[in-house]
């Protein structure tokens, strides 16, 4: 066909429609096909590039599948002990308040072993960003039950399905965190469709912008897939997530504002 673009034309700068952000390194990611981690990494990297804050951003990687996140984003990194990323981020941010600091944590990391560090960092209103990948399972260690695992969901340590009597209830940690006065922005997103990817990126951008305004903690949960852990194909995993997780973990903002100011009575009392 006459009017088909030739390869020489396609690669012309004026025909560029999409370019990998330079904040992502060229290292191939270790994540399984269909895993949400890679998409969220890309979004964080794009936000960092678009805001022009590469030199001023420091990430904290968790223990979990994203432990090696530092191989993929071209910024300075700290690698925290399991669950301690919010404490590490706090320690850094307090002595370097002008930097953008974010943690990137899985559900085992953030909502089981690191519950205390997460709650208290948010309650103090640390001016950090927390990216929370909720895939309802311990991906890295081979698919064991997480605090967020759904009732009836089969995992390596709940082989007959999560049972309330044996395992308790799935933990809606994001709802808990949204109650805390130190939180500025608490939202739940997903990255399973192009539309959701765009929304999620907006949320991440807002979270990073908040952290420069010193208005409290910004927390972005991404309801995610772990097709390896769930033993599903990527397509099945997306469907399973929509069907089973979204009703229990509904998408949308839980809080959007800034950390609470003490009410007039308290201010009066504090003055005494």
């Amino acid at each position: 066909m006459e009017d088909t673009l030739k390869i020489e034309d396609i690669i012309k700068p004026e025909n560029l429609v999409y370019k990998k952000t330079s904040v992502l390194t060229d290292v191939p990611m270790h994540y399984c096909y269909g895993c949400s981690h890679g998409v969220v990494h890309k979004l964080v990297a794009e936000v960092i590039e678009e805001m022009g804050i590469q030199e001023d951003t420091v990430g904290v990687s968790p223990v979990g599948c994203a432990v090696l996140a530092y191989n993929y984003l071209d910024i300075d990194w700290m690698q925290a002990a399991h669950g301690r990323a919010p404490a590490v981020a706090t320690g850094y941010k307090r002595v370097n308040p002008e930097k953008y600091v974010f943690t990137y944590q899985g559900d085992g990391d953030l909502a089981a072993i690191g519950t205390a560090e997460t709650m208290h960092a948010v309650n103090r209103g640390e001016n950090i960003v927390i990216i929370f990948i909720n895939n309802a399972i311990y991906g890295m260690t081979g698919g064991q039950m997480a605090p967020t695992t759904m009732l009836g969901q089969q995992t390596a340590t709940s082989p007959y399905g999560r049972d309330i009597d044996l395992n308790g209830y799935p933990l809606k940690i994001t709802e808990l965190l949204a109650q805390l006065p130190g939180a500025a922005y608490v939202t739940r997103q997903s990255v399973h469709t192009p539309g959701n990817v765009r929304k999620c990126k907006k949320a991440i951008r807002k979270a990073f912008e908040n952290s420069a305004k010193n208005i409290g903690t910004s927390f972005v949960e991404v309801v995610s897939t772990c097709n390896s852990g769930w033993k599903q194909t990527p397509v099945e995993a997306n469907e399973w997530m929509e069907e089973n997780m979204f009703p229990f973990y509904p998408l949308g903002d839980l809080k959007d504002g800034e950390r609470e100011k003490p009410d007039a009575y308290l201010v009066q009392k504090l003055k005494k």
Binding site: V58, V60, M78, A80, A81, R84, A87, V88, A89, T90, G91, Y92, K93, R94, V95, N96, A116, E117, H120
Partner: peptide
Amino acid sequence: VASANMLFGGASAGK
């Protein structure tokens, strides 16, 4: 647990 890990963060900044 948190304070020791806060040290990890602060020390990482070279402080």
